[in-house]
């Protein structure tokens, strides 16, 4: 069953098309990452999903409701925005007490969620006196008061220190596993998303360029080796003649970029040595979503 379903979403600001035929489904209980460059349409997509702005065409269903009727979901959907979106003149405790009014059945008290997010020390501080990171934690604490089925987080790691990021990642994983909460995370921080997401969608120029499970996406990217040698021409020739490896390019620093399809770095090193090509340096670049993301966004910008 889909917690969120988007079909053929289009959104323009005047003649400028921000979202172009976007399709995305988020399964119940999954953690879905939405990544994209600045201006790729992530926040606009989220605002359309949440009914905060109108769109030109397409269908969106969130937990069975259209975006303009999300209030009927009665707290089953929680959104944490890229800015704190909290009343600056309320204290942390007051903000959370106000938020609990919006929960159908609060399952945690304000004091409990303060402790979970590590803002209990600032309980009586007004929001305007908090640091960016603690505002962020308080904002995320909103989501923990009730038992939402879907949590949408826009740039959840902004302003958080390393400890804060770890706490949030841990919380997302725990809520997902223990309560089956589905997540849509929009972020630039691919390494964090890679750690916790079951699915990733890469948004480029208003459309989903790639959307799949993290493992499938990683399988699409090849491990690359950066190799330095005094005989680059011979090394390139050797790589071109060998199966399971591909020459990608040579860079300004003299490194040869070699993609390993079905060979490990040790075997490549052995091949070079056996061919009497001395290797002075060898750097292994493991496959990652970041490289896939760069590949997709650079392809599209060419």
């Amino acid at each position: 069953m889909h917690a969120l379903s988007i079909a053929g979403l289009n959104k323009s600001y005047g003649s400028f098309k921000v979202i172009d035929d976007l399709n995305l489904n988020i399964e119940t209980g999954s953690i879905h990452g939405l990544v994209g460059l600045n201006g790729s349409g992530k926040t606009t997509t989220i605002e359309c999903i949440l009914g905060l702005q109108a769109f030109n065409a397409g269908d969106i269903t969130v937990l069975g409701y259209a975006p303009e009727n999300l209030h009927k979901a009665k707290g089953k959907l929680v959104a944490i925005f890229d800015s704190a979106s909290l009343h600056p003149n309320l204290t942390v405790r007051q903000c959370l007490n106000q938020a609990s009014l919006l929960c159908d059945k609060p399952i945690r008290s304000a004091a409990q969620v303060e402790k979970l997010l590590g803002v209990d020390r600032f309980s009586n501080f007004k929001i305007r006196h908090l640091s960016l990171g603690n505002k962020r934690r308080t904002s995320i604490a909103h989501a923990l008061l009730g038992q939402p089925e879907l949590i949408v987080l826009d740039e959840p790691f902004n302003g958080l220190d390393a400890e804060g990021v770890d706490d949030v990642l841990q919380l997302i994983t725990t809520l997902n596993k223990e309560e089956g909460t589905a997540f849509l995370l929009s972020s630039h921080q691919l390494p964090y998303l890679e750690q916790i997401c079951s699915h990733i969608a890469i948004l480029n120029k208003g459309a989903i360029a790639v959307s799949d499970t993290v493992s499938s996406l990683l399988a699409q990217t090849a491990t690359t080796v950066l190799l330095k040698t005094e005989q680059p021409e011979q090394a390139i020739e050797l790589v071109k003649q060998t199966n399971n490896i591909n020459f990608v390019k040579s860079d300004e620093s003299g490194y040869l970029h070699i993609a390993l399809d079905d060979m490990n770095s040790a075997a490549l090193n052995q091949l070079m040595v056996e061919s009497q090509i001395p290797v002075s340096e060898m750097i292994l670049k493991k496959n990652s979503l970041a490289s896939l993301f760069r590949e997709i966004t650079s392809e599209a910008s060419v």
């Binding site: 009914g51 905060l52 209030h71 707290g75 929680v78 800015s83 979106s85």
Partner: peptide
């Protein structure tokens, strides 16, 4: 401006 309306609209209030 501060965004606090969004919480109300998304969760419970038309």
């Amino acid at each position: 401006d501060i965004g606090s309306l969004r919480h109300l609209l998304v969760r419970r209030v038309s």
